[in-house]
Design a protein around this nucleic acid. Sequence first.
DNA 1: CCCCTATACGTGTAAATAACCACATGGAGG
DNA 2: CCTCCATGTGGTTATTTACACGTATAGGGG
Lengths: 254, 254
Amino acid sequence: MLALERRNLILEKLQEDKKVVVSLLSRQFGVSEETIRRDLEKLEADGFAIKSYGGAVLNENSNVDMPFGIRKNKNVSAKQKIAELAAKLVDDDDQIMLDASTTAVFIARALKQKSRLTVVTNSIEVLLELADISGWNVISTGGKLKEGYLALLGYNAQVGVERYCADKLFLSCKGLDIFRGFMDSQEAFAQVKQSMIRSAREIYLVVDNSKFEQGAFCKIGDFGILSGIITDREPEQEWLEFFREQGIRCYYPR
Amino acid sequence: MLALERRNLILEKLQEDKKVVVSLLSRQFGVSEETIRRDLEKLEADGFAIKSYGGAVLNENSNVDMPFGIRKNKNVSAKQKIAELAAKLVDDDDQIMLDASTTAVFIARALKQKSRLTVVTNSIEVLLELADISGWNVISTGGKLKEGYLALLGYNAQVGVERYCADKLFLSCKGLDIFRGFMDSQEAFAQVKQSMIRSAREIYLVVDNSKFEQGAFCKIGDFGILSGIITDREPEQEWLEFFREQGIRCYYPR
DNA sequence: CCCCTATACGTGTAAATAACCACATGGAGG
DNA sequence: CCTCCATGTGGTTATTTACACGTATAGGGG
């Protein structure tokens, strides 16, 4: 039995039972307990397990099993709620734009029950999500694949976006601030989002609650351009008033 | 026994048993352990295996996130052979085009050990395969997502292709015929391939042996434009002579 | 609350085995 | 004839593992 093979089996058992015990594993594999401890040490270093006296437990909130360290697991239920609200704003035959964000993937999934939609996106994951659907018009902007992401960015992505004029855009961001607008952390993402803003009639900002008051480096735009904002729970009073002043509809689960 | 043949057998055993052991393989094939290690190194570089002390285990994580658990498994070893031959024709810093075919995915995988490549493709799967690589320039043509495929097609895909001029194009097809050239079954695929042909200097047709004498509906092009043809085993004498006449290099495993 | 004991943990050591490296060989193809 | 590639070889280095022994921890009894 190979060392890696043994570690994989331990990981499997760990994922099944949520915990493992050193003494049992030692007997099961016929190796010394020290060996098992070293295995667990490695699994812990890789983020799969958390050691404890006598064994280890599964590290549930690890993103390690996702392809390239994607944080898809963060705030799942918030994104789910947001996606459902977004889907309510969409009608059959609509033309939609989705950016390259995990929230967009959830929205794409929530939209699947609609008919004859047109979707323009720079997200590879959204394309994958919609690859098995029929009767839609799913369009990729093209562009340069961003290292470590499943997003198409750059000049050609912007050109790809601006070829179209969509009814509705669902836009995500890294942070928002009453005075400075909404922002992303990376220029290239922000630029494509700006192109999308120029190419859509109704613009909905989709943000989970953790994004409020969160700063980020690159400004995407001001609140004035928004038709609505979709979030996972009622924002602070201050924000609600601000949205009312600006004439921005605020959607959240009631 | 050919090196390539041995590696394919190791891969088969790997897929069957989920693991292989250096010492056993060495005895089984009658080659030194060092050679086996080099084989495993290659399989690891191609993403099929993960080496471990004493052997290697199957890398299961590679094709998992595909939507409709695709037909990638047809003719695997032929496509693998073709991909390795194709990779030999590529140098660091090359600019490559890959079409939307399963063979292209194998080629992409085989290319991963190169440095600083530029890859233009209309295949979502190729993008996925290359999403975790660094220092490359991976470009998506954009276009309309073809229902039931992971391919981007249509006018904008063609425009996306023709923005570039690549050093080398690896082109697949559904069938080829001495008199009628090489063909695809669907117009939209054929059109993008034609755009690629217009946008590349060296064009290599990649076909497994089953494609010879196979007809298909839409003509892609004539043999005159080809620099070479890559296949998984020695073609019939008739074809070899034809390629010689046409000045087309023919690559197959020896 | 403190202590005691069984159990688990970590380290150091040593031995076996595998991996790595550099170089030599030899054959195929140009 | 030369080059390139795959392979083998010998010496060196690295990894894995078990065992022994001192230390740390949990949990119960006093």
